[in-house]
């Protein structure tokens, strides 16, 4: 069986062929190809690029709208939280010791102990230093003291409660109550109390 012969195209053949083609047909075909190329390069390709870009923008807009809608729906809740926490922040900020009030720390503990029937047996600066995180460490400095007190469980509870409810920022970081061995019902309590003092020149 004979193999099909592919037409051999050379430049000279093409010239010869072009010379033999009707000029009118040649011009018509050239215009058609030109129009096709113009359509492709000046309309179709820019439209494809534009579609691609706009589709990405549409997706971004959709995401932004979804996120914004969720956030907007949370505005009342966030406003409420802001007010709630704002009040607490205001209250706590007012309760920090002023630098000149540092000396009152022992006085406050002593007075509270006296009021609640607890005896202070010993006190000393705490060995463990409370490290505050930044940026609060620049604004406040903790002063910690270790106390040993004695009293009944009920009085110790009142004493601790009195310290924690005192209208200045006092925080109890550790506490140990041992059973009363010498006098029944009188317990020995060792605790570390920290007072928070405003750093001068800040806030």
């Amino acid at each position: 069986m004979n193999k099909p012969a592919f037409p051999k195209v050379s430049l000279s053949d093409l010239k010869l062929r072009m010379a033999s083609v009707d000029r009118r047909t040649l011009i018509q075909n050239t215009i058609a190809v030109g129009a096709f190329l113009l359509f492709t390069f000046f309309f179709l390709l820019p439209m494809l690029v534009h579609n691609h870009q706009k589709a990405e923008e549409v997706n971004q807009l959709k995401n932004r709208l979804t996120q914004a809608t969720v956030k907007i729906a949370r505005i009342p809740e966030m406003t409420k939280q802001k007010e709630l926490f704002g009040e607490r922040i205001k209250q706590v900020r007012e309760q920090f010791f002023e630098p000149e009030e540092t000396n009152r720390f022992i006085e406050i503990v002593s007075t509270t102990a006296g009021d609640t029937g607890v005896k202070i047996k010993a006190s000393r600066p705490a060995t463990r230093i409370l490290e505050l995180p930044a940026p609060f460490s620049h604004a406040y400095a903790p002063v910690s003291y270790e106390f040993v007190v004695e009293g009944t469980y009920h009085n110790l509870g009142r004493f601790i409660n009195g310290l924690e409810l005192y209208p200045k920022n006092l925080a109890l970081t550790s506490l140990e109550i041992m059973g009363g061995e010498e006098v029944p019902n009188v317990h020995r309590c060792t605790f570390v109390l920290a007072a928070f003092i405003k750093q001068s020149g800040l806030r």
């Binding site: 926490f85 922040i89 706590v92 609060f136 509870g157 409660n161 925080a171 920290a194």
Partner: peptide
């Protein structure tokens, strides 16, 4: 600002669970 400050108070200054 607000959550960070409140977290700081909860951690160190004014814990929600008092020792008493």
């Amino acid at each position: 600002t607000i959550f960070a400050e409140v977290d700081f108070y909860d951690d160190f200054v004014d814990p929600p669970l008092e020792t008493a």
